[in-house]
Design a protein around this nucleic acid. Structure first.
Lengths: 110, 110
DNA sequence: TGTACATTTCTATAATTCGTGATTTCTGGA
DNA sequence: TCCAGAAATCACGAATTATAGAAATGTACA
């Protein structure tokens, strides 16, 4: 992951409603959730929710798909994993072997 | 980790210079780096660097310690790990057993 | 005690982000 | 074609945050 992508992902998550949305989608798992459900779950106004979903989407943290007149959102765990890789790059004094097992385990999980 | 702590950590990292500082400290490892070294490495002005180190410190992402007339900073990996735990809570449909190995591996590494 | 160095704090200005209301687009069904 | 529901987009004032320069603090050492 490049720095600008990491920055947009981190600043997207550094906002209360967007963090709530992302965690809601993480908990929802691979099925995700449609915008209306998210709005109801978080008691959010439709337009602010939409704006925040757009920010998360541009940051690559969520993926959207139209489903009839609803739009379904899912958390993109692959982006999350590469963000972690970027943040913890060279975390073990450059000895990647120390961290590799942890990153691989994260990829298998979720 | 509570939500407000996660928010302050994420928004602290969602800023270019602060992200650079944090990654610099992660690469520096347990020895950390003094403010002057960081400023030289990032070509940062002393006052803006100080302000951003303060933000990272309040977010719990770095730890500081005076060392003569310098101040040494270190990345706090424990905060990072609990942030990941917060972000990925219930990521495997509530089946924590799927994620536990990955989180444990992360704790051992770094 | 006096000086030099490293870092922080203060202050003012500039830039960015946020939330809200109104409008618009897209879809499905009468 | 027309209407209703779902979501996105636009515009704008308010609030927050960032930046730089200048001054102040704390430390070491002669």
């Amino acid at each position: 992951m490049e720095k600008k992508n990491a920055l947009s992902a981190l600043s997207a998550l550094g906002h209360e409603q967007r963090l709530d949305i992302f965690r809601h989608l993480v908990k929802a798992g691979p099925d995700g959730s449609v915008a209306g459900e998210i709005a109801a779950a978080l008691s959010a106004l439709p337009n602010t929710l939409s704006a925040n979903l757009s920010v998360l989407s541009q940051a690559g943290l969520v993926i959207s798909e139209r489903e009839g007149r609803n739009i379904r959102y899912r958390a993109d765990m692959a982006t999350m994993q590469s963000l972690l890789g970027f943040l913890l790059e060279d975390c073990c004094g450059g000895d990647a072997a120390l961290c590799a097992p942890a990153f691989n385990a994260l990829k298998r999980c979720c």
